[in-house]
Structure formats: C-alpha cells, structure tokens
C-alpha cells in the first residue's frame, strides 16, 4: 500500500524539526510516474490494435462489420472515459468479471482512445487517392495485398500526427485512474499532499512531469514521421 511506504519517509523526531524529507516523497511520485508510463504504453498498444480493427471494420464490404464497428465507436466516444472506467471497475465484478485496477484502467483507456483513433484510421485510408486503388487493380493485386502493400504505407503517414495527439490524450486520461485507487502519479501526489500538507510542490511536480511526457511523445512521433516519410517523396502530394 502506497500510504504505508510513504509513512516511513516521515521526518524523524529530533532531526531538523519542520523540515520535510522531500527525497522520499519524490521517489514516491517517481513510483507513480512508472505506473503512469506503464498505463500509457499498454493503453496505447491496446488502442492501436482496436483502432485498426474498428477502423478497417467501418470501411468493410460487409454491412454487419460496418455496423458493429460504428456501434463500438459511437458508444465509446459517446460515454465519457470516466464512466467507462467506473463501469469496468465497479460494475463488471457484479457481472462476474473481476479486474484489477490496472487491468480496468488499461481496458477503459485502450477502448476509449481506440474509438477515437479508429476514426483516424478510417479517415486516413479514405484519404488515399482513387488512382492508388485503380493501380492495384491494374497490377492484379488481391484486396489484402493492395491494402497491405499500397494503401496502408501511405495512410500510416497521414495517421501518425493524429495518433501522436491521441497518445497525449491517453496520457492525460491516465490521471483519472487515480480515482479507482490505482497508484499513478496523480494518486501519489495526493498522498504527498495529505501527508505533508504542502500542495504546491507535489502538484507542480507532477504537472511538470506530465508535460515532459507529453513533449516526449510529440518528439517521438515527429521523429517516427520523418523516418517513415523517407522514400515517399513524390508519392504523396
């Protein structure tokens, strides 16, 4: 339990009264940062998988797949992440599915952001020009080959910047899991607040850390974009 481990960092009697040992609290917040990063990475992976399934489903030839994908996307975009998280954590156990806070968090975050990203996948695939599909037909490629070798490599590059934004939204949404008692950065900051009585330092620290993580994501995505854009000059207009 995080509160207990925090208690051992209380200032010892006799040594510097009224001074708070910040290093202990900082390590607590860093432990929370690890959980936040874990959630972000695992949630993003789930979101990515779901986004491709649902995004391709929405432009499928089969009406039933289109219908299912639309229902999923509208449902998860329509209800708030907060409600979904609470549903996963508090209601699913009554239906016989017990999830740990981490599982519930990854599930809710991944499915929620996946729904937004599915629309990105769909939009990017539709943005590839008709002539590319015609070229596929002319080269006698199968539908799968056409999608895999011609359409997706071009569409991925269109998706990437928006995926970056989605990942940042997911990072920000991870703070909500603190409300289902998962010890992420926000949760730990609240513990530090309640134990030290200091409010500015814990919250300013985690705001800074969240911002650094967001910057890292956006730099990472930009670097990936540059890497993937190589060799596509002249193909894209």
């Amino acid at each position: 339990m995080p509160p207990r481990s925090a208690r051992s960092h209380f200032p010892q009697h006799g040594t510097k009264p009224f001074m708070i040992d910040w290093s202990g609290y900082l390590s607590l917040i860093l432990q929370g940062a690890v959980v936040t990063v874990q959630l972000t990475v695992m949630g993003s992976i789930l979101a990515l998988i779901v986004a491709f399934i649902a995004g391709l489903g929405r432009i499928s030839r089969f009406a039933i797949l289109r219908w299912l994908a639309t229902a999923y996307i509208e449902f998860f975009r329509g209800t708030s992440i907060f409600v979904q998280l609470f549903f996963a954590y508090f209601v699913l156990p009554f239906m016989g599915i017990s999830l740990t806070p981490l599982q519930a968090g990854v599930l809710a975050l991944g499915l929620n952001v996946g729904a937004y990203a599915a629309e990105v996948v769909r939009g990017a695939i539709l943005s590839v020009g008709r002539e590319q599909y015609e070229a596929c037909t002319a080269l006698n490629l199968s539908r799968w080959q056409c999608m895999r070798k011609v359409i997706l490599p071009q569409a991925l590059l269109v998706m990437l910047p928006t995926f970056g934004n989605n990942a940042i939204e997911l990072l920000k949404a991870t703070s909500v899991v603190s409300l289902i008692s998962l010890a992420d950065m926000t949760f730990q900051a609240n513990i530090v607040r309640s134990q030290t009585g200091s409010t500015l330092i814990p919250f300013a620290t985690i705001l800074f850390l969240y911002f650094v993580f967001a910057l890292l994501i956006s730099f990472g995505v930009r670097a990936l974009e540059r890497h993937m854009a190589r060799g596509l000059d002249g193909v894209r207009t």
């Binding site: 920000k172 703070s175 909500v176 919250f203 969240y210």
Partner: peptide, 21 residues
C-alpha cells in the same frame, strides 16, 4: 501548450488545493 499537455484532473486539484495557500 503547457495547459493542453497536462491532465485536467491535476489542474483541478491545483486550482482547488494550491490556490487557497
């Protein structure tokens, strides 16, 4: 950019807990 890159929840805590100080 900073406000957009950080979670609303933490900002709410900030306004609610830090400003009274």
């Amino acid at each position: 950019e900073f406000i957009r890159g950080t979670p609303l929840l933490v900002q709410l805590y900030f306004i609610f807990y830090v400003l009274p100080d």
